[in-house]
Design a protein around this nucleic acid. Structure first.
Lengths: 142, 142
DNA sequence: TATTGACAGTTAGTTATCTAACAGTTATAC
DNA sequence: GTATAACTGTTAGATAACTAACTGTCAATA
């Protein structure tokens, strides 16, 4: 007598993911960026000395190359980042943040930290640790 | 010396959510529907005796009314569902699945179950139980 | 070394979501 | 009872993701 339909993990992950996206978007809306753009700018900032290319962003954020192209074109036109073709490989583009973006990084890291805190506010230290381990284990196999 | 930027829970939930969405979409692609459409048809099927309206779907799936309108228009045009204005309230529309959709429900419930199993395959029974409790607790407060 | 395949990025077109403004219906309050 | 507010759904327009087809570059190999 197995249940005909019951996918609590799938449903919970979908709903929590959606709620977090909306919260994160809302929290940095006033900066004129959405959460994805904020996360990407932060990641570029931390990795721009490593000859970061668009491919790396696609891998890290699980997006398609075309989506990265489109997003970076937008950020470049608005003066947040720049892309330079490196001398040693003309099919790549290295990515760098510009001052206009650097100024905002602390702000949206604070905002993201607040959302982060909201997630785990109801958990004990031990529960937080357990959850993190379980999430990492799941993510590795997915 | 607090870490300048560290949001592992936010990041893990976003990535896992994205991976699950892609897996679920892929798993029922051959039926000509995406995961969200499948989930919604399943939900309508289980609740159509309760005078289900679009507002209910928006609440359950955390989508805007406009998104529900657009999605249901598509499903209605393709003959999966129908919407009827009830006699007692002309501003609402009750929603019902049509045979063409009912035929598919078992298929995509099986597909969703496979994705569900993938999520927890690496966890022990005890870990599964713990995870479910933590996710429910988080979702309630978010 | 010339060909072929893999790789990095772009473009065009599609889709699902969103917000804002709106129409019509029902409920509330004076 | 009428005016106003709240509710339900729709439309129009924007955005961010996708796939498929493409250009150009680099690497492997025969």
């Amino acid at each position: 007598m197995k249940p005909r339909k019951d996918t609590p993990y799938l449903d919970l992950f979908q709903i929590i993911g959606l709620k977090l996206k909306k919260k994160a978007d809302e929290s940095i809306k006033e900066l004129g960026l959405n959460a994805q753009q904020g996360k990407i700018i932060g990641y570029i900032y931390e990795n721009q000395e490593t000859e970061l290319i668009q491919r790396d962003l696609a891998d890290r954020f699980h997006l398609r190359g075309a989506s990265i192209t489109s997003m970076l074109q937008g950020l470049e036109q608005r003066g947040f980042i720049e892309r330079k073709i490196p001398a040693n490989n003309e099919r790549q583009k290295n990515i760098y943040v510009l001052p206009k973006a650097v100024e905002l990084i602390e702000d949206f890291n604070d905002s993201f930290q607040k959302v982060e805190d909201e997630i785990v506010q109801v958990l004990s230290e031990e529960e937080k640790q357990t959850l993190k381990e379980l999430l990492i284990k799941i993510n590795e196999r997915l």
